[in-house]
Amino acid sequence: MMMRPKNQRLVLVSAALVALGLAALLALWGLQDRAAYFVTPSEIVAGKLEPGQSARLGGMVEEGSLQQLDDGVSVRFSVHDGDKAVAVTHAGILPDLFREGSGVVAEGRLGPDGVFIADRILAKHDERYMPPELDHLETAAETVER
């Protein structure tokens, strides 16, 4: 069966597109682990990090866990991912948006005692945007749902 040149080209381009998509999918599959921006507390508890190895730790700041340490400049808080939690210490300033119960990314290394020593703290916010007066209502609703 003969195809018109136009259709021939269409088939050719489609085939190339499918091949390209598959190749990209394979490449991304291989990249999956290394493209992650941070590790989670669960991964640390599972022993993914060696002590002293530098990494980023991401998760939520546990409510009520933030405390000022005796040296006056360091803080200590707990980061969890809903399953496991890891203690983090940081000597320095916290970003404006750092809140208990909100997202955080800590850059640093795992200490020998299993406490993550952060050199830098970044705040991570979620995809929700709302007016201030709705904030407590939403949080209350969520608490009730749980």
């Binding site: 493209a35 992650a36 921006y37 989670t40 991401g58 991570k124 979620d126 995809e127 945007y129 709302m130």
Partner: peptide, 22 residues
Amino acid sequence: VWWNTLHQGQSIDLVRGESTID
């Protein structure tokens, strides 16, 4: 969605017609 990122997830889902923006 695929990787954990510093950037937050998407706010507007056009397919489902949902938005997490008030």
